[in-house]
Simulated scan of single mutants.
Amino acid sequence: MLTKLLGGGSKDKHVPHAKKENLVRIEKPIENLPDSIKTHKFKSLTKEQEHMYAEVLKYFQDEKLLVRNSEKHSDGSDPHAKSPLTLEEKAWLTRECLLRYLRATKWNVSDAIDRLKKSLAWRREFGISHLGEENGDKVNSDLVGIENESGKQVVLGYENDARPILYLKPGRQNTKTSHRQVQHLVFMLERVIDFMPQGQDSLALLIDFKEYSDVPKVSGNSKIPPIGVGKEVLHILQTHYPERLGKALLTNIPWLAWTFLKLIHPFIDPMTREKLVFDEPFPKYVPVNQLDVLYGGELDFKYKHNVYWPSLLEMAESKRRHYMKRFQKFGSVVGLSEYDLRGDGEELIYKV
């Protein structure tokens, strides 16, 4: 990545389009993983890893555990205020969640526990700790809906390894820089996580910096975020969504965007850098029947906010209800597996 960052920008590339007869018109998200893409059970742990995982699990299974209600106390809350884990927070603390934080801390038990507690506090303060607006999340569709009216972020399709795809299109920016833009990104990250199939716990980002003439320019704004916003987003992704990014494909990167990437490069952790792919053909990583025609796929996707947005919300809520129903079915305990919670089997594959 560093070598690429030291280079220049890139112009829009010619992308070979699929044959017209193969195109599929679509205006809504793809609700489920196609049969042509397979997932697998999660990797087994070594005995040492099982022991470290058991330590973290035991800590968060403690019914007397209290967690801070905010990370930075920017809401003016009591910095010492704590409360027990809620039902939704226990559902968030899955086997895979604990393992993601262990991997991110290089299997340091105390560091993993500390980071998990900080993320729980951040989720409470940010307003997403209830796993959906139907359960009381403050960052909801009413708040961020205006941000997506131009279709600048879209959940659509699955890549080769069954990761759900979130398209980010800064060139369709329709609002002035504000904290709501960060709330919108987090909201969409939570939605693409809702779309994860059984056996997959990471996502793919497809980032296109192309300018779009149909989106009116916003006075005093740029499709490249200020460095402060970029650092905040990086902090959120790396600190509170560790191991969630499976692949990030970037295309149509202008000189200004390369400059921005150079500036934030020191803040990108090495594990994230390895997952960034620059200006390679998207069909190399995404089946054409899951990919937007703009990038060489067969999906003739047109964003219509009054069609796409309610469909996204309805599908995501349905998936969350399925997840929570199975969480309660299997005892509402910390450490249940996302493989079981996203599945439909009658027995647990990964017992707590």
Rank of each mutant, 00 (worst) to 15 (best):
L263H: 02
E211D: 12
L291T: 13
L245M: 09
V307K: 14
F260L: 07
F260D: 06
Y295K: 07
H235A: 08
L256Y: 09
V277W: 02
E280M: 10
P254Q: 10
I268N: 05
D208E: 12
Y303M: 06
L261G: 00
P242H: 10
L294A: 12
F278K: 02
A316L: 07
P270I: 08
V307M: 08
P283F: 09
D292S: 05
P242Q: 09
I224P: 00
K223Q: 15
E274Q: 14
L276S: 01
K284D: 03
K262V: 08
N306G: 00
K210H: 10
G246Q: 07
P266M: 04
L245S: 00
F209I: 12
V288Q: 05
I224A: 09
I227Q: 02
H235Y: 02
F267P: 00
H265I: 02
E274N: 13
D208T: 13
F209Y: 11
W309S: 13
G230V: 04
G246W: 04
L276T: 06
L312Y: 05
Y285T: 09
V286C: 07
V215H: 01
E298Q: 15
E314R: 15
P283Y: 06
H305A: 14
L250C: 12
H240F: 10
S219A: 15
L261K: 11
K217N: 04
P281T: 11
V288T: 08
A257G: 11
T272N: 05
K231N: 07
P242M: 06
G220Q: 09
E280I: 13
W258K: 14
W255V: 09
K262E: 01
G220T: 08
K223I: 14
P287E: 09
K217M: 04
P226V: 08
L249A: 07
I268F: 00
T251F: 07
K223R: 15
K231I: 05
K231E: 02
F267C: 08
Y303K: 13
